[in-house]
């Protein structure tokens, strides 16, 4: 995995799952686009445990194009893992991720790179005119709006795989589960500058979409987890105290009503119920605050510190041999 000696300008990371029909065309398209750019580059295909012989197609392709790099997973580990494996393997200063189903257009890579040159750390593609069925576009619109509000990073299209990252921003992230959607939001925790740019989108040619309808609950659960992590993972006590405030209010109200009931006797002796309610919600407050304290303990014992990107990397780096930016 360690290939520190060969540094490239650009790494293209493509997660593939059951895309055997698309692989050769995809490789050809990416390659012809990249040849136009004055850059050293590498293309990394990650086979995420495909069952339709995608790996055989990749091996055949590798025989003809030795420059291709490919990683094969033992079993299907999900798109996030595929991307993380690609990021860890990539040696480029800039990493671009691309969907394996040809719905992204490789010609957009140069537009993304322009934006990176302007000084952004992450440039996300925005499929302004989506060529998908309405039933997929609508949930995705809602999800994007919710993610934007929940995470505080406003993007129109979190779901677009076509994104460009500066390597040091993305390599230090801890991503797991199905977090690939949230890379820009996650990276913004460390101070990365995120922007988006409209890209082209093509209808699917081969194969079927790998997404189902049951994803919606999962995605929303992930959004909740993500927004909580982004907001509170460095200060959990704050988050839990925030949750406890309504209960504190309830405790106060019930206690007050109980006292009034005793003093004014408007319940005809049945005032214990108020005190039971006070005790219950008071217990909730104590429990939540205790959880928050444990959370602080967990965070303080972890070796993950929320380091900000060093200022030097925020400079506009030049890319390409002709500009003398790298070898």
């Amino acid at each position: 995995m360690d290939r520190a000696n060969e540094i490239m300008d650009l790494s293209i990371v493509v997660p593939l799952y059951n895309e055997c029909e698309n692989v050769p065309e995809l490789y050809g398209k990416i390659k012809s686009e990249l040849e136009k750019l004055p850059l050293t580059y590498e293309i990394i295909f990650i086979d995420d445990g495909s069952t339709d012989g995608t790996w055989d197609v990749i091996e055949k392709l590798k025989a003809n194009h030795p420059a291709l790099k490919a990683i094969k997973f033992r079993h299907n580990c999900g798109q996030t893992s595929a991307m993380v494996a690609g990021f860890n393997y990539a040696s480029g200063e800039i990493i671009v991720t691309l969907d394996g189903d040809l719905q992204n257009d490789p010609s957009d890579i140069s537009i993304l790179l322009e934006k990176i040159k302007e000084g952004y750390d992450i440039v996300s593609g925005w499929r302004k005119e989506r060529k998908d069925h309405f039933s997929r576009v609508l949930p995705s619109r809602i999800a994007n709006a919710v993610i934007s509000v929940a995470t505080g990073v406003k993007l129109h299209d979190y779901g677009c795989t076509l994104k460009a990252y500066r390597a040091e921003c993305i390599k230090q992230l801890h991503a797991y589960g199905e977090m690939h959607r949230f890379f820009p939001a996650l990276a913004s925790m460390t101070g990365a500058r995120v922007t988006e740019i409209p890209v082209k989108h093509h209808p699917r040619k081969h194969g079927t979409s790998k997404y189902g309808f049951d994803r919606i609950f999962k995605v929303f659960s992930d959004i909740l987890a993500m927004s909580l992590i982004i907001r509170f993972s460095s200060t959990p006590l704050k988050g839990f105290v925030f949750c406890a405030i309504p209960f504190l209010f309830l405790t106060f109200c019930f206690g007050l009503m109980g006292c009034l009931a005793v003093l004014l006797d408007f319940t005809k002796g049945k005032d214990t119920i108020f005190f039971i309610a006070t005790a219950l919600s008071g217990m909730g407050v104590i429990h939540l605050i205790t959880l928050g304290v444990i959370g602080e303990l967990v965070v303080s014992t972890s070796d993950l510190t929320h380091t900000r990107l060093p200022e030097t990397t925020k400079k506009t780096i030049t890319i390409g041999k002709d500009q003398g930016g790298s070898n």
Partner: peptide, 29 residues
């Protein structure tokens, strides 16, 4: 409270799960 427990769980995974890699690479070419 159970949602709070879940949040605590997420924080533990996020801050302490870094050492556990989720994927197993079979081959690199």
């Amino acid at each position: 409270q159970s949602a709070g427990m879940g949040l605590l769980g997420e924080i533990i995974v996020f801050t302490h799960g870094r050492r556990k890699r989720e994927y197993i690479i079979e081959k690199i070419i």
